[in-house]
Design a protein around this nucleic acid. Structure first.
Length: 239
DNA sequence: AATGAGGGCAACCGCCAGCCG
DNA sequence: TCGGCTGGCGGTTGCCCTCAT
């Protein structure tokens, strides 16, 4: 079958979206929905291909998208989910309300990969060459092993379903495994208890030396233990 | 103040799976 | 059952911004 012609072959616009294009797209979707992405640009009067419109909407214009920096909890969740799901960014994004797969993918490749890379000992304590582009006001790092989100709404405060990831790990179903706001409170409290596990450190979730294979196993154990412990108050587990 | 390097992120590309006629 | 169409996904690219020199 023939591949659909791309934007440039059809004389359609490419590249960054203008505010005007954004406005038209949002207005059209709010009015008519997006039942057919291919027909949408023509109906809305946008000189873009449907794919481009969809991407723009999904990754940027959707009203439920949470802009701004990732909290430490979110980053830890990404690391954990990636550990279980691999590069299934959409599956990971589905468990992080307000975050898109593209955003998570970017964060993974720009921040978290480095965070998880084993650091050479000579550089382990070296100052970063560059300062972070943006500060993260919503994540307060303290001297101890704990980080505390300032705003629950900016962490994973909305009801977060981690069911599918756990389904992949086995034993759980969507209906049986729901995490709500207090989950992270539980987690933080337990993080203090399990400070010996090396999960949370000032430098990162896996300790300043990065994850050794053993650390990776410990990480898995940590999360499993965490889920089981949390089940007393918030989570129903059926094993 | 100028400039080169590096990082972050939006957008594109190409493939795949599912739906429908 | 088959082929075409569409939406969705993951990988990659390239521009722009920031920082160090």
């Amino acid at each position: 079958m023939g591949r659909a012609p791309c934007c440039e072959k059809m004389g359609l616009k490419r590249g960054p979206w203008t505010p005007e294009e954004d406005r038209i797209l949002v207005a059209h979707i709010e009015r008519h929905g997006h039942s057919n992405w291919r027909a949408l640009p023509k109906q809305a009067g946008i000189l873009r291909c449907g794919k481009s419109c969809r991407l723009r909407w999904v990754n940027y214009l959707r009203p439920d998208i949470k802009r701004g920096n990732f909290t430490r909890e979110e980053e830890d969740a990404i690391i954990h989910l990636h550990h279980m799901l691999g590069n299934r960014w959409s599956a990971i994004a589905a468990r992080l309300p307000g975050r898109t797969d593209n955003e998570i993918k970017n964060v993974w490749h720009t921040n978290l990969v480095k965070r998880l890379e084993p650091k050479p000992s000579s550089q382990a304590n070296a100052a970063p060459k560059r300062k972070p582009k943006k500060l993260q006001p919503e994540a307060v790092t303290v001297d101890g092993p704990i980080t505390v989100p300032v705003s629950p709404e900016q962490s994973l405060s909305t009801s977060t379903t981690m069911a599918s990831s756990l389904e992949n790990a086995g034993s759980f179903t969507s209906e049986e495994f729901q995490i709500d706001d207090s989950f992270w409170s539980e987690m933080r409290a337990m993080t203090v208890d399990s400070s010996g596990s090396g999960m949370e450190t000032e430098d990162g979730a896996f300790g300043a030396d990065g994850p050794s294979p053993q650390a990776t196993n410990d990480d898995m154990d940590f999360w499993l233990k965490l889920f089981v412990q949390a089940s007393d108050t918030q989570i129903l587990l059926q094993i």
